[in-house]
Design a protein around this nucleic acid. Structure first.
Lengths: 194, 194, 194, 194
DNA sequence: AATGAATGAGTCTTCATTCAT
DNA sequence: AATGAATGAAGACTCATTCAT
């Protein structure tokens, strides 16, 4: 039952099917057969819309990154002007529900691991990591000198990613409250340093 | 010409070949053919000594974990009695050369990601994460109350893992000095809290 | 906006696109997607006008054969009455520019090879080969007895096809002058035989 | 039931299976499944011994070329010293039974056609064509000047290939007697030219 | 103890065809 | 008349495993 203008619908459908498959089966077992089955379409359609599995994987990772970027952008927009507020907003966005559900975290980890040997994915992931660092450093620099800000930014970014990594490897769901609290304390500590 | 006592030699040979293959090719492309080639043996030998590829992978991860555990144990032994000294020793062990070279980090990440969908690996990895937390918390508890120690431990463990994760995803080698410095500052900060 | 009389236009369009695709990509890689792209139409149109890829291939071969037949007919019409003149005219037609450019030769060879296992194409090709033989033999019979004419015809036909085959397999373009000269010499030789 | 030293046996087995499949099904339908079935082995073995289908195809073509080369070499060895005798020996070798059975001819044609778009096969085929020309020209030069020999060689090579091509496209088996007779006459004619 | 020959399930991809619009 | 969305079979290839030697 072919229809016109299906492209965006099918692409979204397939991206979600990919996330679902990676979450349930793992990156290694997320075959296009599995993905197509979850999307309720045939395997051929993947090549039709994404020019192969690799294209679908990349599009899916791009989608996740975009979600995170939007989440952070929105958090910053509704945050106050104080660096502390803005930094906590960034932390909260990174631990927002959509980012901390088991499926998303497992998928992120899978993508990162596979990005180590896939230049295209690696580039995407690098941009993401650099952006988090920049966002954070930018706020710290309002109160700290360049060197202090750099250290504070590295520390906070590591803290966020560390909680995130440990959360993704845990069996239980991540309770975002504790990480947020610890990160907040870290932020306050850093800002009062000088 | 059967040789006696080949078992430990062959096993070690194959574990190193696995690390080498995972590092250079990535987890997905580390086939037993590649591994056997690097070890200079035939593929059949893998089933003989490890009962299949899965057994080899698990043994390799176990080996990495043991290395880390020994590294930490040694660091603690030669550390002083002060919690601060002991905690910094733990940090240093986690960022020691053998743990932060690109190959080891890539392998760790690959194992972690794949552990998400492999119960055997997952169990190993859980033990490891719990041990780091326990080690750290034990030291913090010498100066802090249980709740404070728990938070401090979670924070420091996240900091360590976060630096480690960001390092493994970087293109350049990790300069351990900065993470160690930031972790040290964090430790001192936590210990003076009360 | 349906248009009237599109059929002949579309068919011609698609036949030329097929020749172009077979020439550039080879018979094996001349998919209907490629052909449709070159014709600037959708793939569906091929089934519409030719009832499938096979129909298009057959029509294309038929088109090539017709071109050759017309070329020979024209050559004979403007040739004199002497058998020698007429035979040379046939030779020239077989090596005329439109038949010896790389594209046409490659396409012919591809069609012939595939005709070995496709009855429809095989029939077309048989007619063609028989026609060349008949045309030639008819002229030789004006001066030779039946048996001699048969041999002369077989020889000349083989000579033509042989040059043609060697030309199609060469990397460089075929210089028609040499084959024509050698064929002419052969004709003269045969005609003076008795 | 793995055995040692199977390589040459399996390779030969698979090459023959390839010839059989190409002959019966055509180049396009000679899938590795079909080939493996004819050889009585699994498909995986093809990659094992030939590093993929392409390697098998190339090895098969190389085998055919070698057969022809040996056939010609043998014919020349047992031929007299006279150019005429030697040239006829070459002709006979080209139309010997092993070269003119339907299967071999169809396979040759299929290979040649596909060689147009496969550099590896093309190179093999070029060598073959050049060798035939050289062999022939070498003999003609014993009696003719360079230019005459070149023309005579081109003519005879075309004659051979032409008969061969027409034979491969025929439905019936090729009766080698007629081509040999016509070629012989051509040779004699050329040699008495000056 | 060790080899490597052999298997066959599983992966991704390509492609001609069909059909609702 | 024409599109292009969708299918699904078939293709080549990879790979962990098995087993006779």
């Amino acid at each position: 039952m072919p229809k016109v203008g299906m492209q965006p619908i099918r692409r979204q459908q397939l991206i979600h099917a990919t996330l679902s498959a990676v979450n349930e089966l793992g990156f290694a077992d997320a075959s296009i057969t599995q993905i197509a089955k979850r999307a309720g379409v045939s395997t051929g359609i993947i090549s039709h819309y994404f020019d192969g599995k690799h294209g679908l994987i990349e599009a899916t990772m791009r989608y996740l990154l975009q979600q995170l970027a939007e989440s952070i952008a929105a958090a910053l927009q509704s945050a106050g002007d104080l660096p502390e507020q803005r930094l906590i907003a960034i932390v909260r966005a990174n631990f927002s529900a959509s980012q901390t559900d088991k499926a998303a975290m497992k998928t992120w980890l899978a993508f990162w691991a596979s990005s180590l040997h896939q230049p295209d994915l690696h580039r995407l992931q690098q941009v993401n990591h650099h952006r988090l660092h920049s966002n954070i450093k930018y706020e710290f620099e309002k109160h700290l000198d360049r060197q202090q800000a750099e250290y504070a930014a590295q520390g906070l970014a590591a803290l966020i990613d560390g909680f995130w990594l440990r959360g993704s490897l845990m069996t239980t769901d991540l309770d975002a409250a504790v990480p947020i609290q610890i990160c907040s304390a870290y932020i306050q500590q850093q800002l009062k340093t000088p």
